[in-house]
Structure formats: C-alpha cells, structure tokens
Write a protein that binds this DNA or RNA. Structure first.
Lengths: 168, 168
DNA sequence: CCAGCAATTGAGACTCAGTCGCAACTCATG
DNA sequence: CATGAGTTGCGACTGAGTCTCAATTGCTGG
C-alpha cells in the first residue's frame, strides 16, 4: 500500500519539524486511519487496533489524533452526536456533510458556490474565515423512498437531543 | 415581562399536548432562558439559578432543556467546544454562527441566498433537509485590527482540538 | 374541594469520552 | 555507554450528561 506509506512519510515530516519522533504506534495508527475511508470515533480506533492485536493504549490514540489534527492530516467533525468524530483529509478536498436522521448515513459533498457565498458573508461582516463546518440533517433518498418521512421531525429533534445512536 | 409569560404559555401548550405539566421549576427555567439573549451551557443555567436562589437540580435542568428542544423553542448548537450550547429560538429566525477563534465572540447571521443554495444541493442529492448547522471559524473585525492575525491558523487547530476555552 | 395517581423532583450514583501524572522505556547522540 | 528528550501504558481523574428511586406535586374526576 504505497499511499499509506506516503501518508506516514507526511506525518513523519511534520513530526520531525516539531522535534518529535515517528514511533511504531504512531505509524500503525496512521496506517489504520488512512485505510478507513469514513468517519470514525477515537474508541472505534482503539477497538480496531485491539482486534488486530496491535497493542496501543487509549492515551496514545488520543495523543496521536491530536498530533494528526495539528498536522492538518485529520480533521475533527461534529456529526450530531455528543462526541467527536474524525476523518482523514485526503489531499485538499474540503467537504461538508448531509446526515440522514433516519438511517444515520453520512453523505459528503463539496460545493464551491456555497463556499463563495460564505466568503461574501464574511466579507460583509469583516470577518476573516479560516475554517467551517456545515451539517445538513434530513432524510436520504433511500429512506424517503421507504416512506420514512412522517417520522422526520421527531428524528431531527432526537439528533438535536443527541439521542440518536448512529450505526449502533 | 409579558414576552416571557407568553413563552411560558407556549411551553405549557406544548406540555399539555404531551400530557405533561408546567411546574414552577420549568417556568423559572423558561423565564431565565428567554431573558438570556445569548448562547448558554446547561451548567451555566444551573449556576445562574443557584445565584438567584432558585432551587433546581441539575437533572431537572437537563430534562427541561430536552423538553424545550423537543418543543422547538430551544435549539442545541455546536460552538466548537466539546459540549453543547443552547439558544432560544426567538420567533422563526434561523441563523448560523461566525465564531472568532481569538476572542471567542459569536456573531449570528442569516443569509437566504446561502440557504437557497443548500436546498439546491440537497435537491441534487435527492436529500430532504430538515435542519442545518453551520459554523464559520475565523477572526472577527476587532481582533484582526488588533493584529491578532498571525496566530489564526494555530487557533483554528486548537478549536479543532477542542482545546480552546472560550470565555473562561 | 379533595382523593388519587401520574408526572415530577432532587440527590447521588453512574457512564463515558477525553485528559493527566507518572514511572518505565526507547533510542539517537556525545 | 551514559544522558536525556520524547514516548508509552496504566490507572486515576474530570466533567458533561444520564439514570434510578423514593419523596413530592399538580391536575382531574367525582
């Protein structure tokens, strides 16, 4: 997997710039994270590493995630639950999320018109934007076909309440 | 304060519709929440009630906030920290947030062009939106005048890391 | 107007994500 | 081969939010 090794190299460069070291624990985490093309939680990562018999502590996972976020290779996202999710930043593709409140599906999208408008708003408010985070909650195509619509308003409230347990 | 009493009435109507009761605790919380024209945390509310010698437990605060979110009178927002903030929904004015990563200021805005574009994106993805949440992080006008700009990228990462303690 | 019961409350135990302190360890460098 | 900066795992800790349960309160029908 040459891509994974390249990411490990990127991380190493970042670490060295900070006077830090690339350890085997950090390398396996990067490998795992960049092999997962989806949002994940810190504890999921811990579990997966255990599954693969890679011995690594929770503290190290959190510490490494922090470094990866600092390096810009991973970002933290809010997905409607009351704790963080993470996703790796593949190249430079910023995107936002449509979150289905019925089945928990997360659909990524990028729209430059939207982003341009955001910049206009910031300009008008004399605000210098550096980062943003947009989640649109609603019902995905397959759920609305299944007629899950009537339940929607309650589900949104549930996600607002943080009560929705996605993928569980 | 006739406005506050009207909100209490709205809440009572909602509660009665659910076979629930308006208690003095719930009424004082609504009064406090709608007197605060800003985002707040659950524990802030607890503290303020203690200050005013209104005896109310933490469990009740959380339970009442849940009911208020269900009723649509209050919404839960993410403001870059690792726990929720709440704000009352005044009338029907939906808005999003510009969050200054230097001073912690939160600027509200509403832009119908932006919202229209979001609806277009959803249509294209055959997604039925019901709610959304947009935070733009950056530097507010007064902070950039003070020349706080160079620090910005780090601050964004800090907020991404959840390490930034706003207003504390 | 009051009995009765469902809804509500407070207190404190609990959960769970995330953090911290610390002793043990690694490993490059002098 | 000693030094020391950086790293690790462990387990204790924190803090937001939830749950349980016994005691209490507010509404409603008689």
């Amino acid at each position: 997997m040459p891509v994974l090794e390249r990411e490990i190299g990127r991380f190493q460069t970042f670490l060295q710039g900070q006077g830090l070291k690339l350890t085997s624990e950090r390398a396996s985490l990067v490998r795992e994270i960049f092999a997962t093309h989806y949002h994940f939680e810190a504890d999921e990562l811990l579990f997966k590493m255990k599954e693969k018999s890679v011995k690594i502590s929770r503290a190290t996972i959190y510490r490494t995630l922090e470094l990866l976020v600092k390096s810009g290779m991973v970002r933290r996202v809010h997905l409607g639950e009351d704790h963080y999710h993470y996703e790796h930043v593949s190249g430079n593709s910023h995107h936002d999320h449509l979150i289905c409140t019925t089945c928990g599906a997360v659909i990524e999208f990028h729209d430059s018109t939207l982003e341009a408008r955001q910049r206009e708003i910031c300009e008008r408010k004399r605000f210098t934007p550096t980062f943003h985070n947009l989640q649109i909650l609603g019902i995905c195509e397959s759920c609305s076909k299944k007629g899950e619509l009537p339940d929607a308003p309650d589900r949104v409230k549930m996600i607002q309440l943080g009560a929705l347990q996605l993928r569980k």
